[in-house]
Amino acid sequence: MMGFCADPATVEGVKWWMCYLTTNTHISFYKSFLVVLALLALTAPLAMLLGFAGALARRSGIFPVSLIGHTYTSMVRGVPDIVFFLFIPIAMDQAFELTRHKILCPEVIGPVYQGNDFVVCTAAKLPLSTADAWVHTTYGFFLAAFGFAIVFGAFAANTIDGALSAVPKAQLETAAAYGMTKRQTFWQIHLPQMWGFALPGLSNLWMILVKATPLLFLLGVEDVVYWAGALGKTKTAAYFDYPHGDWRLGYFAMLLVFYLFVTWVSENFLSRMQAKFNTGQATIGGKKLPQGIAR
């Protein structure tokens, strides 16, 4: 922090703003934008992975596997997202702690659920109560990211499943006629052509994921929404160095700009991807391609 900020009451004008915008709480606010981007960077690949696994499970010829696939996608798609966002982190946390409790402190015989209380031994706590604050934050963040991935994975599974079905059967029959094995057909013909069909659905899903990131706030992660609310609220001179009125509008406007920027970057990237996957494909998009590029 700049030297002249030592006594905030005396600074004015530009200097006041320089001091105000570099307080520790503001630095945390700026960092929370990275938290949102980190969530996207972590959740998107994880959800894709779950999506693939889900789609392949659904299409599996082995009945129990396809049952698991169908159960996963129907259950997650049918239950309100928010229920899963709230349920998964709590359930996972308690499952981890319960397992650790059974392994690490077998000598404690009392029940873990005592009335309203969930009581595990000190050594089984996750993270340990002696851990630094950042460990607790990171742990919470990973639980949240996992919750997001499970929900969005189910939607991705449905999209990918649909796209796999949309690839013209003639393409696969031709591959078989050329003597390709099932595996070769899948990896070299079926999967590459699937992307063109899946991308509109997946890009939609990505945009929904971007919009859903403020739900992190509900899970106790201090994200952009938390900090915008905390910094924007009225600050009285009695307790704060930089008193001001209700500035939430300004802070939420910053979030608006941030999310619009992420949307703009995503749309550009996704339309390029779409053009790439459509190249040479016998789809409407593939045939329209020249105009698409000229744009």
Binding site: P8, T23, N24, T25, I27, S28, A230, K233, T236, A238, Y239, F240, D241, Y242
Partner: peptide, 12 residues
Amino acid sequence: AYPPYNFINDAG
């Protein structure tokens, strides 16, 4: 979030 009982100061 409830001064003077408890609040987050400018140092976070």
